[in-house]
Amino acid sequence: MGRTVDPWPSPRPEGSLVPPQDQPGEPALAAERSRAIRANALGIGLATGAYAISFGAISVASGLSLWQTQVLSLAMFTGASQFALVGILGSGGGILAAVITAWLLGARNGLYGLSMAGVLKVRSWRRLLAAQWTIDESTAMASGNQDHPAASRLAFWSTGLSIYVLWNLGTLLGALGASSLDDPARFGLDAAIPAGFIALLWPRLKDRSAWIVAGGGALVALTLTPIASPGVPVLASALVAVVVGTVMARSIRRRQP
């Protein structure tokens, strides 16, 4: 299994996807650690690939074509934004609301890129590829290996590649599966959508401020749903994050001398 997804057979061919792992003045990466990192990358890829199956199915059940679904996984490639876009379009929301929600949910990837730029030190087309693969999981894996620059880079690239391939494969499987169903609601696919969102939200509820923001966002959305057009309640909930975030940043600044 490991061999099929192993991105860098050794010896690494010239012009390989991955920048040299050992740079002058840095400690070399032990073979054992490098194996462990690749095994982790494959594990995360398989887990996200499995949930891409549900994305593919939900997207087709929401009225997107197989190609539209696949383009989202290839080009947007950030789970929460993809789920939100198809969820809002599927529930009758406007294009503008769906697109802006996807953008706002994807904004954090820009900040990940900021810290990854210093770790990866990539140029030209490799920089484009690195940016496209800059998501929660690849950034977390790279940060988890911060103590060793080569390990950090390997963690980023192997996780990025593993997830990109398996995420798109899973999407295709899910989309093909749902295309063969005649009535998705009968199979409870509409109930799968909120379950998908709560599963994405769950690991982010780490502290009290996250719970407050989640509660506030839910309250705003619930209040606005009967009066605003579809898609607007979710957009409005972003304001809760802005208000709480601004207050938190201010209190941090005040505490500093």
């Binding site: 706002l104 904004a107 954090r108 969102f197 994405l200 939200l201 982010r204 966002g217 909930s237 972003a238």
Partner: peptide, 10 residues
């Protein structure tokens, strides 16, 4: 915090 508020709303 944006994903927390918006995923919860979703």
């Amino acid at each position: 915090l944006l994903p927390v508020a918006m995923l919860s709303a979703l």
